[in-house]
Design a protein around this nucleic acid. Structure first.
Length: 558
RNA sequence: UGGGGUGUAGCCAAGUGGUUAGGCACCGGAUUUUGAUUCCGGCAUACGCAGGUUCGAAUCCUGCCACCCCAGCCA
């Protein structure tokens, strides 16, 4: 089946532009992160939007680092952002840096001053704030607003030359201090900052502001559609104003869309920073985080993230997506891709009493129930195996159709077994199960056609490998943690559970990092990108399988 | 009594005056050597509210309501 074409208001606008041959039929977008942090799934939405449009319209999409604030930007972030975008499967048309435009930006500022559209203000930041007025009260003109062109030029050049301290002067646009749009009340264009920039070093001590830089950068690059999030709606007037004053190569159209919100997690850089800095998580790539690197480490595929971004759509309405939508995307992908394996997370020893002592044999398991081309693998079976503790109940609940005293179940790909006895320790804990097997059921099918209700997974005790398995769950217990002042109190204590006594198929230890599997009846897991090795196998649970039994359990109050 | 936005089922989301897209979630049922997957069916007439225009309105008009964003020398 052909997927239906993506439709959203931005693509509709582009279609309309194309129909009028606007921009000579060209479509050019850009993804413009500030390199001051790691990318998260919210950026992923923007990446898929911008790069996706470029792809579908045979256009271009630049990666431009919006690096105009030297205080918090660095190369490490630049690198991680490039890595994440590449990993997501996108290639930028051109790599640009706003800092590459510093000289041009400066020239344009001179042009503005010459036109009488910008002036050097010498008010303090506190004064500027109070002169700005409020949401309901208009601002008033700075006493420095009417400096002469010569004086402005002289001061601005002196600012660049480093003749002033931080904060002593700023360059402002001369627009309208009474504008109902606060962004238009003589916005600051340049500030003095004697800080070394990670790319330009000490070449500059004045740095252009976002509103001034972004529109000009877009215009220089010939961007046709400049897509950004809703909070910039009010900045659009300024975006257009700047470009209207200047003799720039083009005038891109800014279009705003709603940013992504996901339930039970946070997208705010401020909160993410605290979680990392205060060690509530292990780092920016902690598998519980919605960062691209976290999702990657968790086991998400680039395809699943792109699919998710496509499903959620692009609108101007601010909504919150349920985590189930993301989970659905990864399950759908992994169900197709991931080879099946057996792993026992919480092992319970089972001795098969009528199995010849010391004997072993090979059974064959398929790597994917629906795709024979994915092959098969041999599994060693023996008289002592491990099964999941959950798969046995001494007094089975209603509708429980796994192993219980006197009950027969199928060991996947092996034999039918029947529980004959339970061994407990002094404290009454079950430490071992005794069973018998039916030799006529090898491979898991009975000769007489009798059925069993349950099929459970297993590994042979002497032929399994030990592994560490990390179970991850939603980071926060509440749907909207960002709305809570004490969000740290709502971190889900069970968001990470480390199991160290797991038993997995021997072949699994040789899997390279970032290999993905379905552990049958459990979920999708991947070898940890950092910690997994042959000598110390470590798996992360990406997502569980859908679990109807768990639902039945809950409803029954079990 | 500032300005800018947004309101379509539990959550997303198409739709731009005239056969009630779709997805997620949820509920049934069929198949199944994963309580998975897959497949069928349901989700009782959803368009913020109130008026109006029209043969006909989620779509056009008027008024109202709710929520979000803006007063960094951040982006």
């Amino acid at each position: 089946m052909e997927k239906p074409a993506i439709s959203n208001f931005i693509r509709n606008l582009i279609d309309a532009d194309l129909a009028q041959n606007k921009n000579q039929g060209r479509v050019a977008t850009r993804f413009p992160p500030e390199p001051n942090g790691y990318l998260h799934i919210g950026h992923g939405k923007s990446i898929c939007l911008n790069f996706g449009i470029a792809k579908d319209y045979q256009g271009s999409c630049n990666l431009r680092f919006d690096d105009t604030n030297p205080e918090r930007e660095n190369l490490e972030y630049v690198q991680s952002i490039k890595d994440d975008i590449a990993w997501l499967g996108y290639q930028w048309s051109e790599l640009r840096f706003a800092s590459d435009y510093f000289e041009q930006l400066y020239e344009y500022a001179i042009e503005l001053i010459t036109q009488g559209k910008a002036y050097v203000d010498s008010l303090s930041s506190d004064e500027i704030r109070s002169y700005r007025g409020t949401l309901t009260k208009s601002g008033k003109d700075s006493p420095f607003r009417n400096r002469s062109e010569e004086e402005n030029l002289k001061l601005f050049k002196a600012m660049r030359a480093g003749e002033f301290e931080d904060g002593q002067h700023v360059l402002r646009a001369k627009i309208d201090m009474a504008s109902p749009n606060i962004n238009m009340r003589d916005p600051i264009l340049y500030r003095i900052r004697h800080v070394s920039h990670y790319r330009t070093g000490n070449q500059w001590c004045i740095y252009p502001m976002y509103d001034y830089t972004h529109c000009i950068s877009d215009a220089i690059e010939g961007i046709t559609h400049s897509l950004c999030t809703l909070e910039f709606e009010d900045n659009r007037a300024l975006y257009d104003w700047v470009l209207d004053q200047l003799d720039v190569p083009s005038h891109p159209q800014q279009i705003e869309f709603a940013r992504l919100n996901l339930e039970h997690t946070v997208m705010s850089k401020r909160i993410l920073n605290r979680l990392v800095d205060e060690d509530h998580v292990s780092g920016w790539d902690d598998p519980r985080l919605p960062t691209i690197s976290g999702l990657r480490r968790r086991g998400y595929t680039p395809e699943s993230i792109r699919d998710f971004c496509e499903r959620i759509g692009v609108t101007k309405k601010q909504g919150t997506i349920a985590m189930g939508v993301l989970e659905n995307s990864i399950r759908e992908d992994l169900d197709q891709q991931a080879p099946r394996r057996m792993a026992v997370l919480d092992p319970l020893r089972v001795v098969i009493e009528n199995y010849p002592k010391g004997q072993t044999e090979t059974v064959t398991a398929s790597n994917h129930p629906k795709f024979p081309q994915m092959g098969q693998r041999p599994l060693t079976f023996s008289g002592v195996i491990f099964i999941e503790r959950d798969d046995f109940m001494e007094s089975p609940a209603k509708k429980f159709f796994r192993l219980a005293p006197g009950r027969e179940v199928r060991l996947r790909y092996a034999y039918y077994i029947t529980c004959t006895d339970i061994i407990k320790d002094d404290r009454g804990e079950i430490i071992e199960i005794r069973c018998t097997y039916d030799p006529a059921t090898k491979g898991g099918a009975s000769a007489d056609g009798r059925k069993v209700k349950g099929t459970i997974h297993w590994v042979s005790a002497d032929h399994a490998a030990n592994a560490e398995i990390r179970l991850y769950d939603r980071l926060f217990r509440v749907p909207n943690p960002a709305a809570k002042a004490d969000f740290l109190e709502h971190v889900n204590p069970g968001s990470r559970v480390v199991l160290t006594r797991c038993k997995v198929e021997q072949g699994l230890v040789d899997a390279p990092p970032e290999s993905r599997f379905q552990f049958e009846r459990q979920g999708y897991f991947c070898t940890d990108r950092q910690d997994h090795s042959r000598s110390r196998p470590v798996f992360n649970r990406t997502v569980t399988l859908r679990d109807t039994w768990a639902k039945i359990g809950k409803t029954a109050g079990a």
